[in-house]
Design a protein around this nucleic acid. Structure first.
Length: 518
RNA sequence: CGGGGCGUAGCUUAGCCUGGUAGAGCGCCUGGUUUGGGACCAGGAGGUCGUAGGUUCGAAUCCUAUCGCCCCGACCA
């Protein structure tokens, strides 16, 4: 705009409002994250180290995610089953890489009875020591493998396509709500196939399911690719993954799918008689996503006023806040609120009736509003006496920020709600994609690479995602990890152009995705 | 497991150095006025100061041990 162009009237300076979450993202991202989870009423730390209490709002979110993903797993031919929480210790001795990967983080059950000891306190009864300790599953390849070994005799018994929704325990050094907890919830798919080709296809198919789920339900754009050897699942031949960027520009693994080759089949004895009458080992896969996805969504979408939940997985998509200041109008307002809720519930979006809640609690209107803002409810509707008189409602879309509010005719609010939810869903995705785009760079020299990942001052954060060539050498990978704490998150399938490795000058088949990660 | 820090009411914390029997804010309860962007007034409940020893007439405070938690590192969905 040139100097002599008349300027439009400057927008009224917004009244400064304290952000609901302190510190803000810019001030202290890790602390902001903890506060968002807490303020959003998703979960809290429990008295058990590393274990969280998932509160109703967080659990409701997980249930929505489960429901959607479960349908996708069924649609790709899988069935649910359930296997034991406890795994005999000896099962872990069967696959060398696997045991090495998990041994350091296993909870082990050694007794089956308590008694009062000499000091008057309860203790595990020495007489009740287990002959073979039981490991609380950190993952179920071995115990499910043992079952598959019983179930499979012929190629006609294959494939086996099973998923389990379960909790697992990994005794991690440093737990963080949702991102890395000692106990967490997940689904783990375990399949067994006649041929490598089928198993490889399954591995890629399920990664595709995860990509779709992340994009269309969680509003998370992800990079899709394969892990390098150093980042591979213990015991796997190939590990595929989806990687998301969150708002401190770090990468987070949001889902994995492994081709296990015949490693676990050999360890567990999953063998069958082939079409040619030969005895062969099955080719197996496993794949999973966890409650970490909740943490990923928080870090990707939330703002300085709290959560912003994608409507497709929000436990409540629309909350109605009756404004009933005067005793004499209260009954009418509540009645109108319930009527509005019923009309909204009769609407569908993405093939499902809208999830609507009327918050009738008698607490201050502002407090109530902020609670739902912090919980990330996609749409809030305020309905008061003035609206009753005018036939309007005040509608607030969470993705537009905590201050957003528009007064529209009530009928429009009802008929337009599916589209509004769609807009919020799309808005979150677009914002996350734009953020990732802004912080992803193709880098061609070692100097640029190091500069990109080196903060210029204490407050500044590192660059983000770098797409850079790599000669395939684990030594280069290790050196960069040591220097910058940057690792190869994956070799994206979309990167196919050969080039030159900036670290060695050697040829590179394609660019790798480099980042700091959770 | 190595390095640093911290345990006082539901939460955040003051008091500790220099011992004298615990205070605040938020939250909670009651009543009233309020409620369209985090309300206000008045009254009230709630703590054996992480635990166990020791020193002392007397310990939240000093000493020893122990447990737990947080941060940094290695590990990791």
């Amino acid at each position: 705009m040139s100097a002599d162009t008349p300027k439009p009237a400057a927008p009224k300076p917004a009244k400064p409002i304290e952000p609901a979450i302190k510190p803000t993202r810019a001030q202290d991202f890790p602390e902001w994250y903890q506060q968002v989870v807490r303020a959003g009423d998703l979960a809290e730390n429990s008295e058990v180290r590393g274990c969280m209490v998932i509160k109703p709002w967080g659990c409701g979110l997980w249930e929505q995610m489960q429901q959607a993903l479960d349908a996708m797993l069924k649609a790709t031919g899988h069935q649910n089953a359930y296997f034991p929480l406890f795994i005999p210790l000896s099962y872990f001795e069967k696959e060398a890489a696997h045991v090495e990967g998990f041994a350091k983080e296993c909870a082990v059950v050694t007794h089956h009875r308590l008694e009062v000891g000499p000091d008057g306190k309860m203790r595990p009864a020495p007489s009740a020591q287990l002959a073979e300790p039981l490991v609380v599953r950190p993952t179920s390849e071995t115990i499910i493998g043992a079952a598959y070994a019983r179930w499979v005799q012929s190629y006609r018994d294959l494939p086996i396509l099973i998923n389990q929704w379960a909790n697992v325990v990994r005794w991690e050094m440093r737990p963080r709500l949702f991102l890395r907890t000692t106990e967490f919830l997940w689904q783990e798919g375990h399949t067994a196939h006649e041929t490598e080709k089928e198993a490889q296809e399954e591995t890629e198919r399920m990664l595709g399911v995860y990509e779709t789920f992340a994009r269309d339900w969680l509003a998370l754009p992800v990079f899709v690719g394969e892990k390098t050897e150093s980042e591979r699942f213990p015991g796997a031949v190939r590990t595929l993954c989806i990687e998301a960027m969150v708002q401190d520009r770090k990468a987070i693994q949001a889902g994995t799918s492994h081709y296990l080759g015949q490693n676990f089949a050999k360890a567990s004895g999953i063998k069958f008689q082939s079409r040619e009458g030969r005895e062969e080992f099955a080719h197996t896969t496993s794949w999973g996503v966890t409650t970490r996805l909740i943490g990923t969504m928080v870090m990707a979408h939330a703002d300085d006023d709290g959560l912003c939940l994608p409507p497709r997985v929000a436990p409540t998509q629309v909350v109605i806040l009756p404004v009933a200041p005067k005793e004499d109008t209260r009954a009418a307002v509540f009645e109108a609120a319930e009527k509005l809720a019923a009309e909204l519930r009769a609407q569908t979006w993405q093939g499902q009736p809208l999830r609507v809640h009327v918050d009738r609690r008698d607490i201050g209107g502002g407090t109530k509003s902020w609670e739902w803002i912090k919980k990330g409810c996609p749409v809030r509707i305020e309905l008061g006496p003035r609206d009753l008189a005018q036939g309007t409602v005040a509608v607030c879309s969470r993705d537009q920020g905590a201050r957003h509010k528009e007064f529209i005719p009530q009928a429009d609010a009802v008929t337009g709600m599916p589209a509004r939810l769609g807009a919020v869903q799309q808005g979150l995705y677009d914002r996350a994609l734009a953020f990732r785009f802004e912080h992803t760079r193709e880098i061609g020299t070692k100097e640029d690479f190091y500069a990109f990942f080196t903060a210029k001052n204490e407050k500044e954060i590192h660059g983000g995602f770098a797409l850079a060539h790599w000669n395939g050498s684990p030594e280069v990978e290790a050196k960069i990890k040591e220097d910058l704490k940057v690792t190869i998150r994956c070799l994206p399938f979309t990167e196919t152009t050969p080039g030159t490795c900036p670290f060695t000058g050697e040829p590179s088949p394609r660019r790798a995705l480099w980042a700091k990660s959770y």
